[in-house]
Nucleic acid binder design. Sequence first.
DNA 1: TTAGGGTTAG
Length: 546
Amino acid sequence: MLLRGPSYPSVLHHHFLLSRLHLATATAAAAAAASDAPDLWIAKAVATAFLLYPSSACSRLAPFLPALSPSVAFAAVRRLPTAESALGLFQVTRSAFGVAHSATAYRFLVGLLFRSGLHEAALEVFDQMASDGHSPDGPYLEFFANSFAEAGQLDAALKLLARASEFNCRVRCYTFNKLMSLLVGRNGAQDAIFFFREQLASQFFTPDTCSFNIVIKGLCRLGDIDGAFEFLKEMRDFGLTPDTVTHNILVDGLCQTKQVDRGHEILRRIQSDGLCVPNVVTYTSVISGYCKMGKMEEAFEVFSDMIGLGIRPSRVTYNVLIDGFGKAGDMPSAVSVYERMMVCGCPPDVVTFTSLIDGYCRSEKLDDALRFWNEIGQRGIRPNAYTFSIVISSLCKKNRISEASHFLKELSERRDIVPRAFIYNFVIDGLCKVGNLDEANLLLLEMEEKRCSPDKFTYTSLIIGHCMKGRMVEAIGLFHKMVATGCAPDSVTVSSLVSCLLKAGLPNEVNRIMLIAWGRDLGLDISSSEESPSSLRKSLDISVVV
DNA sequence: TTAGGGTTAG
């Protein structure tokens, strides 16, 4: 571990501390004899000596050795102003003076280092604590692992929990589950499953139904429904009974992978078996599955079955149906579900309105959509990024750019919404298409000011827009800017620009652009667009109509 | 600690 001394104070301050140290040292012995509690004085002197002479701490601290008990050393460590200096004194007293630090002192230092962001150092001291005979108990191990999880370091958190056997302590299932669930939620399903299997083999982890549910959910997220069903079997072999949540996860997993009929079949079976009671979530998953496939008749049938069984639809159920009807172009049915929702005493939320607005936009009834936008405000519901993006994109598609700009302005003034490039892109592209490049360029500047990084779509729209207006120098400048800011152009960007340059009679510029496009430094976005250089070349052969 | 809903362009 790197030991860094405190930053050096000014000369004046240095002398002041020095005089205080002499005073403290001289008075320490007298105070020790005179007082019943001299430790504080010694601790102060030790801390001051260490702060003043970090590089010669050993010799400076030697006079204090007879009085350097673990509690005095700890008191001195606590007095130091930074985590680094506390660590320095802690280690010097341990290694050079053989101070056997207490578990409390260790935990204090580990916590201090962690809170100061010195996570690696905290782990090292944690290991040292265990090797010094202060193995963590279950609650402390959980606490330390949770600290890493809260700092976003899930891998480190799970690695710590996995060491329960090494410390011969038990960690609660609850903690394992919480961390596994966090991992699944952050696209770490594969790691969570691996971890689960590894822990299952140890005798220090006894999974419960919730643990299996989390892992099954992880497999469904990966699209591995068969693997999820295998785990269901494993769960039973383990002596655990799948509950409604287990079935809901599986039904939803099937519906998300377009196996809605299979999901529906499971719903019917658990209903008839009576082993597990399907609930509003089970039904809503199946309804949502049918809606996503555009099978609105089936979706409504499941909805009716659910009502017939006395299961009350939730707001999510209504929203799923409204969105399904809207996407299927059946706005009368969507509105009828909306009215039913109100009659049933289920207040609509921002998702309800977003789906209604989206439906009207898809049906090319923008003015009806905007009427609902106004109704949101009247009901005290705030449109969110989803709502804005639907309205803005629809207005742009209909060439109502100035209205779209108005909504974009309203969005960018909202402090609770982080602007995203794709929303700006609709308006920038719309402005470019109508030839209003100055406004488009201003939006690019606004994006940069708001630290909303323009992406390849932003730049390509702008490049094409400038080319169309004959502003070739600016188009080329935008391409260079794009590359310089680390935004990789793809074949659409390059081919569009190249064909414009050729039309404009600028073959030399074409060569420069091509050299950059294939230059090593550029890292052309081939992997994400699944393009090989050959396919790129091929696509470049096809001129873009401009 | 585990289950269901809405946005994406050149």
